[in-house]
Design a protein around this nucleic acid. Sequence first.
DNA 1: GGACATCGTGAAGTAGATTCACTACATGAC
DNA 2: GTCATGTAGTGAATCTACTTCACGATGTCC
Lengths: 145, 145
Amino acid sequence: MTTPTDALDRVLHLATLVQADLARFEREEGLSTSRVHLLWVLGASGPSTQQSLATALDVTPRNVTGLVDGLVGSGHVTREPHPGDRRATLVTLTDLGTRTVDGLATSHADLADRLFGDVPAERLATFGEVLDETTQRFAQLMEEA
Amino acid sequence: MTTPTDALDRVLHLATLVQADLARFEREEGLSTSRVHLLWVLGASGPSTQQSLATALDVTPRNVTGLVDGLVGSGHVTREPHPGDRRATLVTLTDLGTRTVDGLATSHADLADRLFGDVPAERLATFGEVLDETTQRFAQLMEEA
DNA sequence: GGACATCGTGAAGTAGATTCACTACATGAC
DNA sequence: GTCATGTAGTGAATCTACTTCACGATGTCC
């Protein structure tokens, strides 16, 4: 018998394990969680201003300055002038940065396959549906509060 | 159709949302994530030496010193002499600390109920089983590496 | 051409975390 | 007993992430 608390605890437990795997990736690449997060967002959204990165990462613009400083230093991104707004800079992935993001995506998909690849389609569908419903329910709870 | 990557992403997404809810709790209590984590461990294991806390939290003993300093200051824990080992100190929850841990447990169970309480038992069972199998598969992958 | 908002960054400070060195105590060998 | 070695906690110094506040340089709109 699975209780609601069981279910939540297991979700959190799995998430913790996956985060540990991410930490391994970070160690191998010599990058911190925050910097990898920034690279990931940059890979998803393309060249971005530091403002938009700050919004996406939910941190202050000042913090992004520091993270980008580090990533410029390690050769993962460059600061390019923004065409059309001389206040802003466009943070852009270098080849190294692109390879890092690709590697992360590959490793992520790989892990997903190894974890869920053998689950029968029907069970996986139920699993996904329950998660979806739950996430929606969560959003609803947030609105009420 | 739910793909393995979908499934993993949704798990991570839900975990992120739940963590946001935890952050709300922390703000309300005026505590940081690390300190709440320490309180939680302390609640689960009872009075502990800083060494064992360091192991449980997977941080250095020096770091525990700082966290306990803060929690002593806020009145959530006390440092008691260890009976039988004068090198060690026993970190113990105060009444306030106990109430905080209880509040966290309640809020956690509450959230779980609101998220999973309406899921039919059979679907919830499947959900729990898939998570369990996956977590075990993860442990197996770690051993191989 | 002002008034006002926006983009990035210097300065200063907080919290979590680390390593290294050191003191106090414990323990087992002799 | 005492001596060697290991363990518990902490001071000092340092790192990263993060914040707020102030400020200069641009953009925008009437």
